[in-house]
């Protein structure tokens, strides 16, 4: 069963890199002076010869990763989500995306749960930015076990992948003995017939608590963990639309351009049903403790329970 110890997905990512490196000598890790924060330092300590700090120069880091990939290496380039996908967007688009190179980009400190550092570092646009690049796979794992498996899947996939990492230590809810990860395949965590909640990333566990509370109160809520934003799992969305008639998406990201719009596009074209987007409502974040911010933005279990009940009754 899931252990109760909290762990941030950035840490799980660093551990996964080490696990992969044991078996694969083509893995190279790059960072832009944030190894201590993105947790690539775990890899750096274990494999110093395959770790390259690029300094505070994210655009160059992405280009170096592209060059390494042309020569057969499998580079993982990590920085904060804001800089890896924002500052270096054009390098990701033109040096990695266009030639479809085998580069893995890890964006840590995504979303408002960055906390005290505030709006400049709280990237709520990364999923949107990465989704728009042709051929880019976009992953947003929800807990420790999922991050480990997602990182392995990213390595196994031949092509560019963006992986979103969180700063905040969170509980793991997946059962490591009974878990499998496949790119592009959502996971149904709770069955239900009244309404479907589709959540992604760090807030999946909050949504899970909210859904379980609502079920105890008699609302039959289906919960899907959508760890892959692109390619989105159309089948699971269409099935949910047909069977529950209403979808609520939950993401720690701007409601513009993220999971909600990806889901709404699928339903609009295949099975139109109401889709309500819960997330960061086109505003910048601000400083404060991460847990407090999640509550303020209505993305903790209590906030989500209230919001889901309200939207389900619409």
């Amino acid at each position: 069963m899931a252990e109760s110890k909290k762990i941030a997905t950035r840490e799980s990512f660093g551990m996964a890199l080490c696990e992969l490196a044991k078996e694969h000598d083509d893995i190279v890790v790059l960072d832009a002076d944030l190894a201590a924060a993105t947790k690539t330092e775990i890899f750096k300590k274990a494999y110093p010869d395959r770790f390259f700090d690029c300094g505070i120069a994210e655009g160059n880091m992405i280009g170096v990763a592209a060059g390494l990939a042309t020569a057969g290496k499998v580079p993982f380039a990590a920085s904060f989500a804001m800089f890896a996908t924002g500052r270096a967007y054009e390098q990701v688009r033109n040096s990695v995306g266009y030639p479809h190179l085998n580069v893995k980009i890890a964006g840590s400190h995504a979303g408002i749960s960055v906390g005290e550092d505030g709006a400049t570092h709280q990237c709520c646009e990364d999923l949107a930015l990465m989704r728009t690049i042709p051929g880019m796979v976009v992953l947003n794992p929800a807990d420790h076990y999922e991050m480990i498996e997602a990182t392995k899947a990213a390595y196994a996939y031949d092509g560019p992948v963006y992986i979103r990492l969180g700063r905040l230590a969170i509980e793991s809810f997946n059962d490591p003995d009974n878990y499998s990860f496949e790119i592009g395949k959502g996971i149904t965590l709770e069955e239900g017939s009244d309404v479907t909640v589709i959540a992604t990333g760090l807030v999946v566990n909050e949504a899970l608590k909210a859904v379980r509370a609502l079920k105890e109160k008699g609302l039959s809520v289906r919960l899907i963990n959508m760890h892959t934003i692109k390619p989105i799992d159309k089948d699971i969305i269409i099935k949910a639309a047909k069977e529950t008639g209403k979808i609520i998406t939950v993401e720690e990201h701007n409601i513009i351009g993220g999971l909600g719009e990806a889901v709404a596009a699928v339903t609009a074209e295949n099975c139109p049903v109401p889709v309500y987007r819960v997330g960061v409502e086109d505003v910048f974040g601000h400083s404060g403790p991460a847990v407090g911010l999640l509550a303020e933005f209505g993305l903790d279990a209590a906030g989500l329970e209230k919001k889901i009940a309200e939207l389900a009754a619409k």
């Binding site: 395959r50 280009g63 170096v64 060059g67 290496k73 033109n94 030639p99």
Partner: peptide, 24 residues
């Protein structure tokens, strides 16, 4: 050997290629 056109990006890619040669 490398897609290019957006100015400023080629040297970074060349660095990656050169680094890969050193590594291997």
């Amino acid at each position: 050997d490398m897609s290019s056109g957006s100015l400023g990006q080629g040297v970074s890619a060349a660095c990656g290629m050169a680094l890969s040669a050193k590594l291997s």
